[in-house]
Nucleic acid binder design. Structure first.
Lengths: 208, 208
DNA sequence: TAGATTGTTAATCGATTAACAATC
DNA sequence: TAGATTGTTAATCGATTAACAATC
């Protein structure tokens, strides 16, 4: 009660999309109601954690009954600002960049790739899935002109920082970086990382 | 001193590959020594955390001097069992699976994709980068015959669980799942997840 | 030596879990 | 009503940080 949106811990914010994803799956499966216990089992976490997490953002359940799947889904969508479609650009038209730009999984979940950029004159102008590859030099005007806030970086590690600098200078506020390197960005710009090798290396510790 | 490998907290194990990655970058940059302070600034975490994390696995530094970049790099490689090359298979020869199978970033970091599988008769036998797509039915014999422990799942969400079941039955012990769905696997099998949309959705909470 | 930095201990901080009154 | 489940409080657990003696 009286939960200010801005005192939700980051770690909790990070789990809300996971809850949303589970609720989508339940909805697709025709389920109308669920409980913290069921969600917890589904996700392999504790039911107390789910109730506690949700309590940071509001009250969505009914004692004895649990949660309306579609109701909670809709609430989470609004809290995460996913009740709209966010445009997104991809920089880097190699294997990863092209694959990710063509990925069809964004549409249902609040995002749409609107352009694919590359630095290489050999690639500029070529077709990659539904996109004609644009010149990196067009990034600033494109980002400003289309009110784009999100970008994915899929260039080799040695170019990632300069691309990030260009993106930030262009007005990008959220970067998802596929290059295996840490970026430095100004306060206020969000960076997330995807590096499959880190995940694999984490597992090998337990192997042998 | 007397640190048993098995009392290293998971959360610390998860950071060791990040340290390793930073040390590789330093090494590539010709740096010979570093300190917990320098690493910390590089990674945006505290120096105390780095020293504390490393203390779980041994003593690698010298007072006054810090850490030998190559020395600590080598130690971490050994602790993470990356002093060998791990074979890896990819299931799903769509956009993402094909891109990831062709990704050249595995080789230097301990992994090598050795086969790409798909269920679709239209795809089996076709070429995807350096791979001829194999039939999913070959997975059990291939995994056993080649002592493969790691697999990446890059199939549509609705098939991911059955693929996971097949992989586990074949002897796979570590799964990196690109499908946006939670998998259930037996005790002892490691699962890691990559879902770019979760990262993007986490950021939009802070936007608007 | 003087300055720097480690590895470790103790203190702090924050996240997770357990428990239960409220109530559908 | 009786059974179930929420939202919340208090207890526990674990992770991070601060501080510093040891020492290169």
């Amino acid at each position: 009660m009286g939960n200010n949106q801005h005192d939700v811990p980051d770690i909790v914010v990070g789990r809300l999309p996971i809850y949303l994803r589970a609720l989508s799956a339940m909805q697709a499966g025709g389920k109308h109601y669920t409980s913290s216990h069921e969600l917890a089992e589904w996700l392999g976490i504790s039911s107390a954690q789910i109730r506690k997490d949700l309590s940071h953002i509001g009250e969505f359940g009914k004692q004895g009954t649990g949660y309306s799947v579609s109701g909670l889904h809709e609430q989470l969508r609004q809290i995460l600002h996913l009740d709209r479609e966010w445009p997104l650009i991809v920089v880097g038209a190699g294997n990863i960049g092209s694959a990710v730009a063509s990925y069809t999984g964004f549409a249902q979940r609040g995002f749409r790739v609107v352009a694919l950029f590359d630095h290489d004159p050999q690639k500029i102008g070529t077709q990659a899935g539904p996109f004609t590859v644009r010149d990196n030099e067009e990034i600033p005007s494109f980002v400003k002109g289309n009110h784009v806030l999100h970008a994915m970086i899929a260039v080799p590690a040695q170019y990632a920082q300069e691309v990030a600098d260009l993106l930030v200078a262009s007005g990008i506020q959220g970067i998802l970086n596929y290059a295996p390197i840490n970026l430095s960005v100004p306060e206020g710009v969000h960076v997330e990382y995807i590096d499959p090798v880190l995940h694999l290396q984490k597992m090998t510790y337990y192997f042998d």
